[in-house]
Design a protein around this nucleic acid. Structure first.
Lengths: 191, 191, 191, 191
DNA sequence: CATGAATGAGTTTTCATTCAT
DNA sequence: TATGAATGAAAACTCATTCAT
């Protein structure tokens, strides 16, 4: 009963679901637990989402879009070197994780669920296309190693996720390591 | 019921469970489906494993050990450069994935389930300790960049998993890209 | 919210409930749907009726009374033959159905629900008593076959309902068939 | 747990469902109650029927077929008068009701549920076609009144159902009334 | 009075586990 | 030992009813 404003209720449900889905996965999370976490009656979830699958799809789509926008916008200043642009992207990844840690885990864990609708996946594909274009530009300038862009993206993002999971599971990674990680990741794709 | 030999029944169950757990996760897989996939009666699973949690723990432990052994043994020849040793490790990772693709996905997906017993996780920790030792040796020889070993492991293994997921989701990564990937990954940790 | 006049709101609710209860039955109809059909807020229904059971009881009682009155009043002219009186009754049945088709279906479908209060059923019993009296009079005059009146009522009304359901389900029954049906029904009870 | 033979379990469920659906309708009956009536666990129902709708469809189809067969087979002897044949049909209706009272009520109550699949309804249509043919033959012989066969069927079956409901609701109809009812019904359709 | 978002008890359905064969 | 039908506790979902606005 957080409010009479349905938008606020909806937001509470989405936040609670994000947290629990990230921690326990889709099948490991049950609807009443989401309701409790959201301080909402179980039935209320079904006033806002047709079913559990609709909920996870809205969540996936919303956060994938927010993630993409956080990384890509605004575009790095013209005239920056590709390395500097990469560092900016890396910093944004990290900033996103610091701001919304659960969202990043959620997006990773649910990337391949067969409950995701086609259009939810589409957002991820658009994102990848934009990144591929940036890499191709870097390759034309000989600033990025000649390699399939999707392979480079997979390795860089994989390395990033590796760090995220390290921090998520264990204790915190030192700030120094963190700041050096961009250089390490750049080494991955520089010629 | 492929045989009267209980060991074979057990193996069939483990194989079926590995496949389904890798595809659908622990909570997304139900026991009767495992039984069907294993061509075994549902009750038979409980003759070999106390319950679903015991099954996933055996699976996790077994495969984590096999994975560790496949990567670490036999130790790379003395006298090889650290880069060459790294290339060997990278090749072994890849070879393991090619041989047991489901197992690698399974190990990743189930790495943080709260249904895993302490001792199942322990295997992973031992493995990490061994790798850290190798990295520390490399760092002493100035063959590997000065950085927290757990950070380097996380990034390298993350990059590897990124490639695995790319291949798993999309179409095959070209053999060329694959063979170049070791060099990219080495760049990640070379000084 | 068709008006500020509460009586009109109440009427809208009753009409909507009649329609939906007739189509889907009591348990198959839910209160929010009735509200939507009535263009009224769900809460408004509870301002006019204590609960769903009270609503169906008001509806049943009201329409059973209207039905009875439409059939029995005014009494057929003195001096008409019993056959002519029967034809008048038959015509009234048919006229009622043409005017309020949903009501007739509703009364049939809900005749035996255990949610009906005693007094709702009473109306039906009174009605039957009146009809029985008329039949008894006809039997005394040898204008109606000697048979338990309740049996004759059941057969005649059953035949009528059969026609109503035929028309309700399929396409329209021809006007000719309709007008002949009174003769057929009279054959059922004439000596 | 009535048996290890699944067919017996299935039969128990069907019998229990028939009884409760006939008494309370589809929406008024819940699955655990069916399970209890069948002396079976609630989950067992779902081993035999995909869901509640599948259950009611199987039930409807099965009983509609049994009903049709009970009435039509074996065909009345050649050479009997149409009136005698009608009396035989009427007797069979009555015999069916005496043997399976719940089934007849069930078929009537569920004749128009929107949860019935097309093919469940089909059985009813075939039945009607056969009866129409018989009536048409009678009309050619001037043994049955000239009238739309579907209208005659609706009235006769309606009259029969009226009697059935009378007996079902109130006390028993006398055996004499019962035996005379065939004559009354025949009057309905004789020229 | 009217509203409709919120609620939670109740219903449908699933599935890990048992046990008679 | 193997089986798979049966089970019932728990999950997903519905809906009659309430109540803040």
């Amino acid at each position: 009963m957080p409010s009479r404003d349905p938008e606020i209720t909806r937001k509470c449900i989405l936040d609670a679901a994000l947290k629990l889905f990230a921690e326990r996965g889709f099948h490991g999370t049950n609807v009443p637990d989401v309701a409790t976490e959201a301080s909402v009656g179980a039935g209320s979830i079904y006033r806002h989402f047709a079913d559990k699958i609709a909920l996870v799809n809205v969540l996936y789509r919303d956060w994938k879009e927010r993630f993409r926008d956080s990384i890509l916008n605004p575009p790095p200043e013209e005239g920056m070197s590709f390395q500097a642009q990469f560092m900016e992207y890396w910093a944004r990844l990290w900033r996103f994780y610091r701001t919304y840690p659960a969202a990043l885990i959620f997006l990773d864990v649910h990337a391949h669920g067969d409950y995701l609708h086609e259009d939810s996946r589409m957002v991820a594909q658009e994102f990848e296309r934009d990144l591929s274009r940036w890499i191709a530009a870097g390759q034309e300038n000989n600033a990025i190693v000649q390699e399939e862009p999707s392979v480079l993206i997979a390795m860089v993002y994989g390395a990033f996720l590796g760090l995220v999971k390290l921090e998520n599971a264990n204790e915190k990674v030192s700030a120094d390591s963190m700041s050096r990680s961009g250089d390490r990741a750049w080494a991955l794709i520089s010629p």
